[in-house]
Design a protein around this nucleic acid. Structure first.
Lengths: 149, 149
DNA sequence: GCTGAAAGACGTTGGAA
DNA sequence: TTCCAACGTCTTTCAGC
């Protein structure tokens, strides 16, 4: 759910979000020291940011290479007429290999970001996408290296 | 830096990572209840996963929409001959609008994921990329909606 | 909006199984 | 690798400003 109205964030809020971005498990006391606020005040601000939907939650950052899901690809999906990409992609939600998916302008209708353990694994996932009802064709680009992000 | 050697993860480790993925600030005691382990045991496993590089850290998940950086795009970059995408993209690292970038197989040489506050903002960033030395041409797809991820 | 105090929960370490 | 026990720190709530 996205906020319809602008959410005013002051400098302290932005600073707190920046610090939580670097360490999502930082204690409120620790953050408070860096922004000259008490732990209580920091907690209240974070709670408000959650309520307003700015903060969705917290998560662990994994090194996918260490987990050996090193093979990535982007798949452009072309839909059949009278098929919305939403219909197709909603069924892909369940697969852990689907990192992200967007509907886009241009040639293709949707873009799907995949991550798998190896090319064989990747192939099975791409096959699965191509066999989805409503998918006319697809075009895949395998990731050679992640340069940024 | 990516680990060269396979990192064996047992089912409990994977379960813990899954739970931390859903809530990166979950207490070790809370996780322990769900995986039938004491808080201490969970903490020691997480510590080991950090040491082994599987866990890089923790972070806050922001709703970019609420922050009003709602306009996203993917830019395929085509390099001039004798220019490596690495050279081009290393200079893009500094821009906060560049969410991620990869070198890929297929038509284009690289794929750049951008996020900006609006289409005007987006346009200036795409212009900047097109003017990079070594960039022959580019092809952009604006994101209409994020379906997964 | 903020601080400070107080109670309980949690993180962290050492030692033993 | 696990658990238990103990200590210090942190979270959370509630007055009070």
């Amino acid at each position: 759910m996205t906020n319809d109205h602008p959410v005013p964030l002051d400098g302290v809020d932005r600073r707190i979000l920046e610090l939580l971005g670097k360490d999502g498990r930082a204690s409120y006391a620790e953050i408070g020291l860096l922004v000259n606020l008490s732990a209580t005040a920091v907690k209240r601000r974070v709670d408000r940011l959650r309520e307003r939907g700015v903060v969705r939650g917290f998560t662990v950052v994994l090194d996918q290479g260490a987990l050996h899901w090193e093979t990535e690809a982007f798949v452009e999906v072309f839909c059949r007429e009278r098929t919305s990409p939403e219909e197709i992609l909603s069924s892909l939600r369940q697969f852990p290999e689907v990192v992200a998916a967007w509907t886009i302008t241009g040639d293709a209708d949707a873009l799907v970001h995949l991550r798998a353990s190896d090319t064989r694994h990747l192939e099975t996932v791409i096959e699965r996408i191509r066999r989805e009802r409503g998918v006319q064709r697809s075009r895949s680009s395998v990731v050679l290296s992640r340069l940024i992000g």
